[in-house]
Amino acid sequence: MDLHGSTVEFRNVKRTFGTVKALDDFSLTIKPGELVTLLGPSGCGKTTALRILAGIDKEHEGIVEIDGKDMSQVPANKRNIGMVFQAYSLFPNMTAIENVAYGLRVRGVDSHKREARARELLDLVGLSTQADRRPTQLSGGQQQRVALARALAIEPSVLLLDEPLSALDAQVRAQLREEIRRIQSTIGISTLFVTHDQEEAMAISDRVGVMNKGVLEQIDEPGKLYNKPRTPFVAGFVGLTNYIPAVMDSKSTVLVLNQVLDVSDHSAEAKKGEEVRALVRPEELQVDKANDGSTVITKSFLGPVTRLGIDVGSPALIYAELTSKEARKFDTGDNVKLSINSDSVMIEYV
């Protein structure tokens, strides 16, 4: 099955609930065949954006277009969108195959064709043997696969996934997200995925949009998002970040851990001597034995890497990540010196 990839566009979409701004001037374009993930904490507006695209939420300002067509007059059940919910969305009175065929049934497709297509899709998601089971007889992961098959059966122009893996066990989650990505890229359907799990977002998306309080702070490929976060929020939300107390050495340099580094995000308000926080990733820190006055307090073996928690005199421990092999040199109680392996750091003003 091959679906034509559609273009989705949000233009200056605003949505308020009472006094709360769920979406503030939200603009986003999904290219044909692209999987875009909206990532953020609860309440950031990601689900709101999804529901607006689905047509379930109709009270918003701004424009939503699919393939150039304005969706504002199009009701939800006419938008030809496939949607997978977080849980509980399968109809309990129907078997798996009946659920998958439902969208075709309401479109008047005859039962022969319906069944054939439904079986085709159950095959695609690997559940052809479970076709006659009821939702309660299926595991959580299986239910979500049926939900996916059901959404795809109607050959939608866009696929929406609202935290589809959040209710599942960790292992099932990891497996299923790979499958979703595989199916999505095989079919080539434009997809909007919503989650609060950044590992999930980074693993399967073409682009990830990080949202905070209704604002899309940055949208980029996962690698760029991780290595070049544009705001402190993004830096803090994506991957682990250390907030190290530092002092501005000039308008554009900062003194942190006895090093002077460039500030990656210049701001005119910076003054020499101002107290700030430097955002440093654990893998950017280099650890050497020394008599510096920094002590290793914790050592956590995480498999391929080991994380050292180091006390540099600031309120929180600074975490450095080394390969477990390198980490063998160190133990709790050791005196070490930390240095930053980077030319520039991001600054957060306190």
Binding site: A54, G55, I56, A76, N77, K78, R79, N80, I81, G82, M83, F85, A87, Y88, S89, L90, F91, P92, N93, M94, Y102, G103, R105, V106, R107, A147, R150, A151, I154, L160
Partner: peptide
């Protein structure tokens, strides 16, 4: 009754009547 069923029905293109007939009443 789950609200997800109503929303799923909508996203799959079903009308309110179809929801009644195929989901609500049987359940």
């Amino acid at each position: 009754l789950r609200v997800e069923w109503i929303e799923a029905n909508e996203s799959l293109g079903g009308s309110k009547l179809q929801y009644f007939r195929h989901v609500l009443i049987p359940v």
